[in-house]
Every structure is written in C-alpha cells, then in structure tokens.
Design a binder for these strands. Sequence first.
DNA 1: ATGGCTGTCTGTGACAGA
Length: 260
Amino acid sequence: MKIASWNVNSIKARLETVMEVLKSIDCDVICLQEIKCETDGFPYLEIEDLGYSVEALGQKSYNGVAILSRLPIEDVQRGLPGNEDDEQARYIEATIGGDTPFRVASIYLPNGNPFPGEKFEYKLNWMTHLRARAKELLAWEMPVVLAGDYNVIPTDDDCWDPAVWADDALAQPESRAALRAIQNLGYTEAYDCLDGRSHQYTFWDYQKGAWQKDHGIRIDHLLLSPETADLASSVEIYKSARGLTKPSDHVPIIGTFEEG
DNA sequence: ATGGCTGTCTGTGACAGA
C-alpha cells in the first residue's frame, strides 16, 4: 500500500502535470491539497480514468482538499470535526477499504503568515483542533495516516537557511510545538522514522531560483498512528516532480506500508 | 536588475501563498 500527500497548487491549472505524476508514482492513495476549486469543479472524470475514486472538499479560489484511491473510499468526513465554524476547506478524512482498512486524512494546515497576527492565531487554533481529532482517531485502534501540507518546518535542519525563516509562521517555536504535541499523542512522522536525513525538502518557492539553488523547506508530512507505523517500510520524497514543466511548488511525499 | 513567481477572480491589480 502506497499513500502519498501532495499540494498541487490548483488541480485545474496543473491537471496535465498531476496526471503525469500520478502515473509515475503508482500510489494506491493520494491526498491532495490546494485544489483551488469548488467541490463540484474537481476534474473527476480525468482522475477516475486513471483508476481512482475521488472524494473532495473544495471552495472557490483557495484551499481545497481531496482523497484519491484505487480501493473503495468509505465513511467520508468533510471538514475537521470539532471545528465546524471554519469556513475554509482544509480537511477531509475517509476510510480506505481493503484487507487492511486505513483511516486517511488529507490536511491543508493554515499558513499562518504574517507572524504575529490573526492568521497565526488561526493556525494555532486549527492545530489545537487537529490534535483533538488525532487523539480521537487513536482510539479507533486502526491504521491512521494524517497526510498533508502542515505548513510547519519541524526543525532548523529542515530548511536551507534558518535565518531566512526565523520570523516566518512556518518556523515559529509555537508552530513546531503544536506539531510535536500531535506526535506526542503517539504519532510517528514517516520521514523522520524511515529516512531522517537533514536538508531534504518538499517545497521550493517559485521565486529567486529556489529550486535551482535547492533553497527548500520540508513542510509536507505523513503522521502515522502506532498501527500504521508498525506497517511502514519506506518513505520517498518524489523530488523530480519539481523539475517538470509547469510544476507545483510542492512535491509528493510517499509512504509504503505492508498490508497485514 | 530598487527585481526575481504562480494562481484566482463578475479580474485586468489585489490577494494569498510560503
């Protein structure tokens, strides 16, 4: 079972690139973020032609998340439970059927800039709700994958130059602590667990030749419940997606899991 | 090079992104 997370920065503007990458990475489940279209506007037919079922939660212009799966998608939860007042489309969760069912969430965590400010408080509040949901899911005692663009640089070793990011919401101690607080419930981050090299990135800005200079940050993460961590065998950052024509500024992060 | 990117919209510049 291969499960990926990928912020595509508009599914419509990126459709050809997305389909090319989906064929290459050959995953069973792909969690998409920043689809930037309304739920009804998702290009369902094109993705279904690749063999995937699709469940999406979108809104006009911004944000938006989706789960693609070759296996049946069941019990879809749209929006982050306990955070029903949030009008932004940032969370969808569902059960992926099969011999070993997985509960999978596609998460687009708020950016939080500028720091400090209301948007940063919104980010921290959102992370508090995510932690509460993560705790609930542990009680399900099944494999859980919380996949997404967390918009958090976990440590200074996960960016090219900590000084550049020091005043940014993505690198604030509060943002990092809120991510660790979720992990401290009992979640394992797939990259930390299965690779762990420093200075490996999932995002490179479009500006200033960031990709060519490898000026990136690692902000896309796969959080695994203990049941999932036991099944995890490898992780890959699909870096070559950033070098394609008309790329997203993020690349997929892919986890491989044994099916017990 | 007082800049340098990309996407969205009842758009043609403002905003959001990170």
